[in-house]
C-alpha cells in the first residue's frame, strides 16, 4: 500500500514537472505598452519576413499574394503542415488579435488561446524579431484583404499531434539567441537580423536533427529538401563563392552570376527580397560573406 502511494505521488510529481516544463511562454501583459505600429514600415517587415510565401493561397500571384488565406502544404518527416489563414478575418484569421497576440505567436510560438504552435511556423527565428517591427507588421496585416477560408487542420500523427509535447521541443530548440554572436560592423549586424530573424533563412538552409531541431553548429550549410531528392544549398563561404554584389543582385532580380534564374521555393523568396531597400540586400550579402568557413 505504501509503495503504491509513493508511486502515485511520484507519478503526480512527474506530471507536474512535465506540465511546468511544457507550459507555453508569453510576454508580459505590458510588454508592448507605448508601442504604436506603422503600416508603411510594416510592409517592409512583411516582405523581409516572407509572410506571403507561406500564407498566400497556393499558386497566388501578384496582388493575390496579399490575400493571406493559407492552405499551402509543407511536407516534413512528422507529417504535413498547412499554413493557416492570417488575413484580418475576425473568425478565420487574425482580425481579433492584439499586437501582443502577434508578438507571443512570433517570439514564443504561443497562440492567443495559450497553445503551442508547430515550428513549421518559424518562431525559432522570429524569436529575435524586434517588438517594434512586430507592431509595425501588425499595423500592416490588418490593412490587407479579408479571406473567410477556414484554416486546414495539420495532417500530423501520434505522438506529434499532442501539442503540449511541443513544450519539450521548445525547451531543446528555442531561446538560443543569435548564431553569429559578434558581427564585425553595423551592416553585418543588420544582415544578421534579416537572415537569422526576419528572413528565417536557416529554417531551410540549416540541416535539422532527428527531432527537427536546427543544427546550429552547421548553420546555413544546406540540407535535404523533405519529400524531394534535392538539397537546399550551402550558403557558407566554403561553397558559395559569389561576390557580395552577385548575392545582392540575385536577391533583387533572381539572376545568378551566369544569368540563370532562381526557381522553386527560392523564386518565391526573391519576390520578397526584391521589395527590400538596396541596403538591406547588401546587408544580407555582407552577413553571408562574413560566415565562418568550417
Amino acid at each position: 500500500m505504501r509503495l503504491l502511494r509513493i508511486g502515485a505521488i511520484l507519478a503526480l510529481a512527474g506530471l507536474a514537472v512535465f506540465w511546468l516544463l511544457t507550459r507555453p511562454e508569453r510576454l508580459a501583459q505590458d510588454a508592448l505598452n507605448g508601442t504604436t505600429g506603422d503600416a508603411t514600415r510594416g510592409a517592409l517587415v512583411f516582405a523581409a519576413a516572407g509572410c506571403a510565401s507561406c500564407h498566400a493561397a497556393p499558386g497566388a500571384e501578384g496582388e493575390a499574394r496579399l490575400i493571406l488565406a493559407g492552405g499551402e502544404g509543407f511536407a516534413s518527416p512528422f507529417g504535413t503542415f498547412y499554413a493557416p489563414n492570417i488575413s484580418p478575418s475576425p473568425e478565420h484569421g487574425i482580425g481579433g488579435w492584439s499586437v501582443l497576440d502577434l508578438a507571443n505567436a512570433m517570439q514564443h510560438g504561443t497562440s492567443p488561446e495559450g497553445q503551442h504552435y508547430y515550428p513549421a511556423f518559424p518562431y525559432v527565428s522570429y524569436a529575435n524579431a524586434e517588438l517594434g517591427d512586430i507592431a509595425d507588421l501588425h499595423a500592416y496585416l490588418i490593412t490587407l484583404p479579408v479571406s473567410n477560408t477556414p484554416s486546414r487542420a495539420h495532417d500530423v500523427g501520434f505522438p506529434f499531434n499532442i501539442r503540449r509535447g511541443l513544450g519539450m521541443w521548445k525547451q531543446l530548440n528555442t531561446g538560443k539567441g543569435w548564431v553569429m554572436t559578434d558581427p564585425a560592423d553595423d551592416q553585418i549586424a543588420r544582415g544578421r537580423y534579416l537572415v537569422e530573424a526576419l528572413g528565417h533563412c536557416g529554417e531551410c538552409h540549416t540541416p535539422r536533427d532527428a527531432l527537427g531541431g536546427l543544427q546550429r553548429d552547421k548553420w546555413l550549410s544546406g540540407g535535404p529538401i523533405p519529400g524531394s531528392k534535392g538539397r537546399f544549398p550551402d550558403l557558407t563561404p566554403k561553397t558559395l563563392k559569389w561576390s557580395a554584389e552577385d548575392i545582392a543582385y540575385y536577391l533583387e532580380t533572381g539572376f545568378t552570376p551566369d544569368y540563370d534564374s532562381a526557381g522553386g521555393a527560392m523564386a518565391e523568396v526573391i519576390q520578397n527580397t526584391a521589395q527590400l531597400p538596396t541596403e538591406d540586400r547588401a546587408a544580407i550579402a555582407a552577413y553571408l560573406k562574413a560566415l565562418p568557413v568550417n
Binding site: 507561406c54 497556393p58 502544404g73 509543407f74 511536407a75 528565417h200 519529400g227 524531394s228
Partner: peptide
Amino acid sequence: MFSKARISV
C-alpha cells in the same frame, strides 16, 4: 520553412 512538395509528388 519546409519544401513545397506538391510538384515532386
